[in-house]
Amino acid sequence: MSEENSTRKKSWKDNYLVQAWLILLMAALYSAVLILVQLNWGPIIKENQRQATYSQIPILVPNTDVANVVEKTLEKDGKKVVAYQCFDAQKNPTGWVLPASGQGFADVVDLLVGLDTSASKLTGLVVINQKETPGLGNLIKEESFRKQFIGTAADQDITVVKGRDGSPEKNEIRALTGATISSQSVCDIVNNTLKTWREELK
């Protein structure tokens, strides 16, 4: 009896890889399916993301003809970013669009910042991705909050003020009620991005 047990234990059928033959086979099969999905839909997803960025450019930099936008890869201290140099229909420069990302209140916030030709003033701001609190922090994507950034100077920090004060001329942004951290995060992300990349926009 004990001999039978010991031979039973050594049977090749008990090897865990053999036991899992179905799972290994399925994993291979599913991987193949997912590769096909990625090959077919991956380019469409990439294109969607590009479209999402490009559709915002005329809002960020006025008078821009999207057909004349040039993508420029900037490099500094081992970091890389793709900036968009904007031109109007007559190929006159109209400004820059710079992607900006950073930590918000809940999750990473992705922004696009519009700048004038000399990168000295902000011409617009849009929120591409955010997962801030619905009804409070996610109001950062509303125009009433975003339009405060238009006209702020790019060479100095933008600050957040509470209450009814605050004007773009003084580089002040009025915080959203109940979402001070989300408001501060957006300003910090803009400030940090401009500090890093403003000088490179030529």
Binding site: L22, I23, M26, W41, Q49
Partner: peptide
């Protein structure tokens, strides 16, 4: 399906189809 490995098979199958659904939404309903 071996009974003691069934949860693994379920999870693997579900994860694959969820990935397909996720890609579909990203591609056609961004």
């Amino acid at each position: 399906i071996k009974p003691h490995l069934r949860i693994l098979v379920f999870t693997l199958t579900i994860a694959t189809f969820v990935t397909i659904a996720d890609y579909f939404l990203q591609a056609f309903m961004p």
